[in-house]
Simulated assay, not measured.
Amino acid sequence: MSNVQPYPLHFKPEFKERVWGGRALERFGFEVPQGAIGEGWMIADHPNGISHVTNGALAGKGLDEIRELVGETWFGAKGATGNGRFPLLIKLLDCNDDLSIQVHPNDHYDRLPKGELGKTEMWYVLDAKPGAKIIYGLEQGVDRAALATAIEEGRIMECLQEVSVKAGDTFYIPAGTVHALCAGVVVAEIQQNSDTTYRLYDYNRPGLDGKMRELHVEDSLNVIAYEDSGASRMSTDGAKPGEWLTLASSPYFVTDKGIVNGEWSQATNGNSFVIVIVCEGAGSIGWSNGVVDARAGDCFLLPASLGQYSLNGEMTVLRSLLP
């Protein structure tokens, strides 16, 4: 298989039922299974979810298998993590209800599960109902003791910042940032390849199995960045056709927003793969050996060795690569 010519990989998502999920991911034309579907793992190489290629010579293969076959040449010099897996995890989230109040550890937390990494992530809001909001960080001056007391007394919401959101807003969420998506929001999430979440509070609601979901208060209090996590947010209304607008620049990924209006020539640099998420509109991705259709909700993995390619049509995209 090592003689397969590089081409843009398109994936079939792995869908996850969540107590807070809904049916919004159907709007992208996916075959969404029955139930409250909260997450589509679009590009995933994790023990808890693997996405599979739908197109070309590698169709039907999982990202884990592709990593074994062509990883180094296709993913680039920086394309493997400390645990050997693909370094990023790309999801679409349908928040039909509020998510738990949560925080993620960094790579150095000594109580991480074996083989697991920390989780720095970002959100790009694809859709938001009027009045939608998220939880994003602690109120100023809240330290560990104050937060622990508020949790014991059932007042945690007083310690959290609420932020109104609209489509096109973006949020960078370094490890240690307390956060929660709330009802009425659909987002694209770009994150370290990790599935470690510590829950501080879950509105005293039962999970899908009718039992209360586990909380991780001690771990949460340990990993929160009380001073400044480095979180940042922005409206992306200023994005202009044919220019990349940088949304997040982290040690783990750099993500830009681009508006495609016609044909826009690009190239991979050999050091990193490029992930393209189509947020709205439709078009195609062309390269030396072919062209693949692209529409809202589609996520593509462009090999580092692809070289010249073009984004075509009328669409808004996110581009993510390793720094």
Score class of each variant (00 low, 15 high):
100 S>G: 07
199 R>P: 09
262 G>S: 09
207 G>I: 01
92 L>Q: 02
191 Q>L: 12
305 S>G: 03
245 L>M: 15
72 E>A: 11
175 A>T: 05
100 S>C: 12
293 D>L: 08
164 S>R: 10
252 Y>C: 03
135 I>N: 01
318 L>E: 03
271 N>D: 15
172 Y>G: 01
154 G>C: 10
71 G>E: 11
260 V>Y: 04
102 Q>L: 07
191 Q>Y: 06
31 E>A: 15
90 I>N: 07
129 K>G: 03
318 L>Y: 03
196 T>C: 13
67 R>A: 09
242 G>V: 09
265 S>E: 15
304 A>M: 03
131 G>A: 07
177 T>V: 03
51 S>V: 11
117 L>N: 09
193 N>W: 00
266 Q>G: 02
113 P>N: 09
143 D>H: 06
248 A>M: 11
97 D>N: 05
317 V>M: 08
105 P>T: 09
157 M>N: 11
39 E>F: 02
317 V>I: 15
175 A>F: 06
88 L>N: 05
171 F>M: 12
101 I>H: 06
191 Q>M: 12
287 W>S: 12
35 G>I: 10
81 T>S: 15
96 N>R: 14
254 V>N: 09
204 N>H: 07
126 L>G: 06
58 L>V: 08
251 P>G: 01
245 L>A: 08
173 I>Y: 04
225 A>G: 03
271 N>T: 09
108 H>S: 14
309 Y>Q: 10
212 M>H: 10
102 Q>A: 08
20 W>H: 04
287 W>A: 07
319 R>H: 10
108 H>W: 01
35 G>W: 11
104 H>L: 11
114 K>L: 05
292 V>Q: 09
1 M>C: 02
273 F>N: 08
2 S>M: 08
164 S>G: 13
247 L>N: 06
76 G>R: 03
293 D>H: 14
174 P>H: 05
317 V>A: 08
259 I>G: 00
245 L>C: 02
224 I>S: 09
106 N>L: 06
189 E>R: 01
165 V>G: 00
16 K>F: 06
82 G>V: 12
160 L>P: 05
233 R>C: 06
10 H>W: 06
267 A>C: 10
227 E>H: 10
185 V>S: 06
9 L>N: 08
